[in-house]
Design a protein around this nucleic acid. Structure first.
Lengths: 229, 229
DNA sequence: GCAAAAGTGTTAGATATACACCCATGA
DNA sequence: TCATGGGTGTATATCTAACACTTTTGC
């Protein structure tokens, strides 16, 4: 089977910069390439866009196929089109970044075991193609966006403690935050519901669990509220 | 001449959302389509990406060819890939938004006269394809970005008065600003150089001209300064 | 002399920052 | 009883927002 066009067409792929957060580390999901070029190298999950599917749809499909992750927060990041970014042919890649609740998708070994792994973003291996640059831009975007949209919650389990939330922000923003000020500010937004649930079996005072109220956020946002940390 | 691939490839275009500012109005640059589909309809300037050129390069080339504008602030906006957005074939469009100094590129009639025109964004004609949506997203981005990056200056001439700058911000943000507070804040950033030049032949007190100091901004930015209005 | 925009300070309220101790729990 | 992280309040500095009159110029 082959496809013929009057003008040359580039190939188009989608790539996913998938972040997870794990107690202490921001992590990135990588897959080991099974085919040339860059066979055996770690790379962002992704693949070619089929003609009948939308871009986001393609990104979701690839992530599902390659890593088994179904539900995630997904947003378009940037489109990379350097003519030489792929040695085979001209390939334009539409990158998406995704946030997943690591605790709820923890063990990954969907298609083939040992082909998918989480790496702390501070200790990434060499990546195929220009994926290092894509990750860099994804990180920059996450860092910027986490400040003015409540997307940090997408990285935490449904129920979380304020300490966990603060550590997440400190990790992503790479700066320490004052505990009292952080709590004051985040609780003052009235986006979190305090649950009647506390940590169990911890070697210190048990922390209360909270839940992010998406509906409340939507309500407030419509009235002109802006999340800001 | 024809091009054959083992897998189907989409076509890839670039489209430009080009903004200008003109005393009182935010304007958008449109071209009238000379060929099918949507022949005769107004559309964003743009066209197919050649295999050997980068995306931004393609966007600049198309803008130069279709509108004669050479120098402009250009940044990638978003990539649109709905499978049905073009009736001919699958076309993925990487949209860029651009800011031009309207006064310095005022009359446009480069390739063919009457094929290119500026429209106030509040009074746009019907647009081809999904270009209306692209414009909408471009506007949203401009509105957001103008607040935390000093890109507003790209829409004004080299030398401008604080009144002009304020009107620009009021137009883009669609809100009135307090004159004294605006001046205090913008001058307080020390990004503007006051020139020894004043308006001529105006029927009111002549305003002083200022210039945006790009170098100074870069200096400050490196030291952690964030522009914010 | 009037219309039109330029230019200029102060104050009150809100927000951000800095900072230190007691509490509950398991080991 | 100790180590660990949870939980809390206040004072100060900074920033924001509201507000009105005088100046200069052309007509």
């Amino acid at each position: 089977m082959s496809f013929t066009y009057k003008h040359p067409h580039p190939a188009v792929t989608v790539d996913g910069v998938v972040f997870g957060f794990d107690e202490a580390d921001l992590k990135l999901l990588l897959v080991r390439r099974k085919s040339e070029p860059c066979k055996g190298a770690w790379a962002l999950p992704g693949g070619f866009v089929a003609l009948h599917e939308g871009l986001e749809e393609a990104a979701r499909r690839e992530l599902r196929e390659e890593t088994g992750i179904g539900e995630l927060y997904l947003e378009q990041l940037y489109t990379f089109g350097d003519p030489k970014r792929d040695p085979r042919e001209r390939v334009i890649s539409v990158a998406y970044y995704a946030l997943v609740k690591l605790a709820e998708h923890s063990v990954r070994a969907d298609s083939d075991a040992a082909e998918v792994a989480w790496f702390p973003v501070a200790e990434l291996p060499e990546l195929a193609f220009d994926h290092e640059r894509i990750v860099e831009i994804g990180l920059k975007r996450l860092k910027a966006k986490v400040r003015y949209e409540p997307i940090g919650f997408e990285l935490l389990p449904e129920k979380f403690t304020l300490g966990e939330l603060q550590r997440l922000y400190e990790t992503v923003l790479e700066q320490d935050l004052d505990k009292r000020n952080f709590r004051k500010k985040i609780l003052g937004m009235e986006l979190l519901e305090a649950l009647d649930e506390y940590q169990q079996d911890v070697a210190h005072r048990a922390a209360q669990y909270y839940r992010f109220n998406h509906q409340r956020y939507e309500q407030l946002r419509k009235r002109g509220f802006n999340f800001e940390l």
